[in-house]
């Protein structure tokens, strides 16, 4: 927590990517990374409200939770879990390539990350479409034969996975921006903070899914 080193090498002060209010590139990088972590804490709390509702209602209505969970497509959920893990690996490799200044590796891995992220969303689209068909979307079209508490499950399912998917979309947009910067050769071993913070965000979105998958898809499988 000590004050950043302000007496850095003189040549660093003239780096074209150094913003005027920072002393040197190291301070700028540290601020960006701390900033992303603080932002991710807000994200944890944001999803936390949903997990709180999940925890309470699952305790109140365990049977509705099992019945609702068994309507979800475990295979598609599992495939998506693996797809996201692969995308996290390619993201980590892209950040590493940026750190060591390997531009082509970085571009290749960014493209792969975008592709896997998109596959996730496409799979999610088919899952959602099936829910509409089966009258599992809460509201007036919800299957009246089901017990009302299942509406709570599916409301939370759609809020949790929907907000997660929205984060994926934002992540893919960010990746395109990073890809464009990488394409224009704007990163170097001295300057890669945007890649690193985008990576942190992407991994966070992956972590949310790591919890959503067992808690939504798998809880009724032993019945």
């Amino acid at each position: 927590m000590s004050a950043p080193n302000v007496h850095a090498d003189a040549h660093q002060e003239h780096h074209p990517k150094l913003q005027h209010h920072f002393h040197n590139m190291a301070q700028q990088l540290e601020a960006s990374i701390l900033g992303m972590w603080v932002f991710l804490v807000t994200e944890v709390m944001f999803f936390g409200g949903l997990f709180m509702a999940y925890l309470l209602y699952r305790n109140m209505y365990p049977d509705a939770w099992l019945a609702g969970s068994n309507e979800l497509n475990e295979v598609l959920g599992g495939i998506n879990t693996l797809v996201l893990i692969v995308s996290s690996l390619t993201m980590a490799l892209a950040v590493r390539a940026a750190q060591v200044g390997h531009r082509m590796w970085q571009i290749a891995n960014l493209i792969l990350t975008i592709i896997f992220g998109s596959i996730f969303l496409i799979v999610k689209y088919f899952e959602y479409a099936a829910k509409f068909e089966h009258h599992l979307v809460p509201g007036s079209s919800f299957d009246p034969a089901r017990e009302p508490a299942q509406q709570l499950f599916f409301s939370l399912y759609f809020m949790m996975t929907g907000i997660h998917a929205l984060h994926m979309v934002v992540g893919i947009v960010l990746l395109f921006i990073i890809l464009r910067m990488a394409w224009k050769n704007q990163f170097s071993a001295d300057y890669f903070a945007p890649v690193e913070v985008t990576g942190l965000y992407w991994h966070f979105v992956d972590i949310v899914w790591i919890f959503l998958f067992p808690l939504l898809y798998l809880i009724g499988k032993h019945h």
Partner: peptide, 26 residues
């Protein structure tokens, strides 16, 4: 962030017909 998601849930109930705090769905 917690109040943000809470208000979003009220929004989902009102605008999209979801059931989160709705006693009719438990």
């Amino acid at each position: 962030p917690v109040v943000a998601i809470t208000i979003l849930l009220v929004f989902a109930e009102r605008a999209m017909g979801f059931a989160i705090f709705d006693p009719r769905a438990g």
